Simulated assay, not measured.
Amino acid sequence: MKFERFIVGMGEANGYIIYDENTLEALIIDPGDEAAVFAGYIQKHGLKPKEIVLTHYHYDHIGAVEALKEKYNCPVSIHKKDVEGLKDPNINHSFRGYRKPVSITPDRILSDGDVIQAGSVALIVVHTPGHTPGSICLVVKDENIAFTGDTIFDDDLGRTDLEGGSPESMKRSITNKISKWEDQVRIYPGHADSATMAFVRAKNTEYLDLLK
């Protein structure tokens, strides 16, 4: 298994491509903008995209979805509680003229515990509402790796003051799910750099305050 991070768009969002080195089947996670950047990497490595997986519906994580779906004819998946937000441009919104509002209808509706497969690579869906109702983390099976979207970052947590956000849901997600991850699990968030859970437990004050 290999993966690559791409920092794209005005919001400097992280998108990822994860793939099986043998079959070259790939998953695209949160392609927020600059479809050509993702496409260039796919072409360079001869990858075969199988699915576009979204951790949530916000504009800075979905901007390249339409172009990549059309180019590779691959399905788009999102948690069932974020479907309406993805389809409604008044919710996923254009930000300060960043781009025109978009309405995307997903092809696959995800639930907690679902598995998304590309070759030998398997992502386990963990429903972590709080930033949005359908926010998810994607845990790589048999690896200490989790793609966390805007749920948790290296030194803070995702905002809960936007439409669909919920401090109560965030607290439950962190307490009941993310806090159970072992120290060696490395999170790859939707913005900023990766970190181990050991680092999070030492430095992430929002995480620590919430658990109190």
Results as ranks from 00 to 15, higher is better:
I104Q: 08
V37Y: 15
V126G: 02
K44G: 03
D112N: 14
T132P: 02
K141L: 06
T105K: 05
S111L: 02
N90A: 06
S111T: 09
R201F: 01
L68R: 02
C74M: 11
I28E: 05
G97P: 14
V65L: 15
L123E: 12
M10G: 15
I28N: 02
G158K: 00
K100H: 06
Q184K: 12
K87A: 14
R186G: 02
S166H: 00
I52F: 11
S94I: 06
F147C: 03
D82P: 04
E163R: 13
N90P: 03
A146C: 13
D112Y: 03
H58N: 11
D154I: 02
G46Q: 07
L24F: 12
P106Y: 11
E34T: 13
E182T: 06
F38Y: 10
L54C: 13
N144Y: 14
L86R: 07
K50N: 06
K171D: 09
Y98V: 09
V83R: 02
E21C: 10
V65Q: 09
T160Y: 01
I136E: 00
A26F: 14
A39L: 13
D112W: 12
E4Q: 09
K81L: 08
Y16F: 12
V140T: 12
D82K: 02
L211D: 05
K180Y: 12
I145A: 02
I17F: 01
L211Y: 04
D112E: 08
I109A: 06
D88I: 05
E21T: 05
Y98W: 06
R5C: 08
L157G: 01
K171C: 04
D107V: 05
M197L: 14
Y188T: 04
E12A: 10
F38V: 04
N204W: 03
H191R: 07
G130E: 00
M10D: 12
I17W: 00
G190F: 01
Q184T: 07
R172V: 11
I145P: 01
V115K: 06
A192T: 08
A36N: 12
G113K: 15
K141T: 09
M197G: 04
I91A: 05
R5K: 15
K48F: 09
T128V: 08
P75A: 06
R172E: 14
P167A: 15
A198L: 07
M10F: 07
E21H: 07
S111R: 13
T55N: 03
I174Y: 01
P133W: 01
K177I: 08
K81I: 05
L138R: 02
R5A: 03
N144M: 11
Y98I: 11
K81W: 10
E25W: 08
V8D: 06
M170A: 00
V200N: 05
A118V: 14
T175A: 12
K50H: 08
V65T: 07
D161T: 09
